Simulated assay, not measured.
Amino acid sequence: MSKKAEYKSAIRSRKMIRHAFVELILEKDMEKITIKNIVDRAEISRGTFYAHYADIYAVIEEVEDEIMGKMVEFLNDFKDIDLVQNPMPFLLKIAHFLDQDIEFYRMLIYTKGASNFITKLKEVLIEKILSYKETIPYIQKHEEFTVRVHFFVGGLVSLYQDWFAGKFECSLEELTSLNSQIMIQGFQDYTLK
């Protein structure tokens, strides 16, 4: 088998394992999920599972690390002021990332552990954006900026959760555009020199 085929096979196997795991979490408590449950659902062998993960917790860790890593990577692609002046490119990167496996992320939002993960995700985003307040020279009211960052990150995450839950009939692109407009208006005081 060529290296490219092996690589695609490994990606496919990990994706099948992750999907099976999330489907099972929707059905029963995580503590009751076994590797046998996952391999049966994913229709793979135990050897395939162990070729990619040491245990069930490694699956969770990989999903969380991947999402958090992508968010930080996307944030690092922008200069501090660029993100505040125009969050649309950042939000489009998030939308594109989610769109690559939308059903997986939709299921993930409904799992019992999702609230802990969402809290961690918000903390990472807030910490990264707050680091900008030292490099944007015309932020005079640091506490006000901090409150706005918390407000917008919390609202942003909540809106995406609600979109996944089907509470909005707009497309992911429309939601992204609306979020960007709201954030631009909310951070307008910090974009004027």
Rank of each mutant, 00 (worst) to 15 (best):
M1V: 02
M1F: 00
K3E: 12
K3L: 13
A5N: 12
E6W: 06
E6C: 07
A10E: 09
A10L: 05
R12I: 01
I17A: 07
I17L: 11
R18G: 02
R18V: 02
H19G: 06
V22G: 09
L26H: 07
L26M: 11
E27S: 12
D29A: 10
M30P: 07
M30Q: 15
I33P: 14
K36W: 00
V39I: 11
D40K: 15
R41Q: 12
R41A: 05
A42Y: 01
E43T: 04
S45V: 00
G47V: 05
T48A: 09
Y50A: 02
Y53E: 07
D55H: 05
I56L: 04
A58Y: 01
A58S: 14
E61Q: 15
E61R: 15
E61L: 06
E62M: 05
V63E: 12
D65L: 08
E66W: 02
V72Q: 13
E73D: 12
F74I: 04
F78H: 15
I81K: 15
L83P: 11
L83F: 11
V84I: 15
V84W: 07
Q85M: 10
P87Y: 01
M88W: 02
M88C: 03
F90C: 05
L92S: 08
K93H: 08
F97W: 05
L98I: 04
Q100V: 02
Q100N: 14
I102H: 10
L108R: 14
I109W: 05
Y110P: 04
N116C: 04
F117T: 02
K120P: 07
K120S: 12
K120Q: 13
K122D: 05
L125G: 03
L125Y: 00
E127P: 03
E127Y: 02
E127S: 13
K128R: 15
I129P: 10
E134A: 13
E134T: 10
T135D: 10
T135L: 05
I136S: 08
Y138G: 07
Y138D: 10
Y138E: 09
Y138N: 15
I139W: 03
I139G: 10
I139E: 07
K141D: 15
H142Y: 09
F145T: 00
V147Y: 08
V147N: 10
V147D: 08
R148L: 14
V149Y: 03
V149N: 07
V149E: 02
G155N: 10
G155F: 00
L156P: 06
L156I: 01
S158K: 13
Y160G: 11
Q161G: 07
D162H: 14
D162M: 14
A165S: 11
A165W: 00
G166Y: 03
G166T: 02
K167P: 06
K167H: 08
C170V: 11
E173P: 09
E173H: 11
E174F: 01
S177C: 04
Q181G: 06
I182S: 14
I182K: 14
M183P: 06
Q185L: 09
G186I: 04
G186D: 08
G186Q: 11
F187K: 14
F187Y: 07
F187E: 05
F187M: 14
Q188H: 12
D189I: 03
L192E: 08
K193D: 13
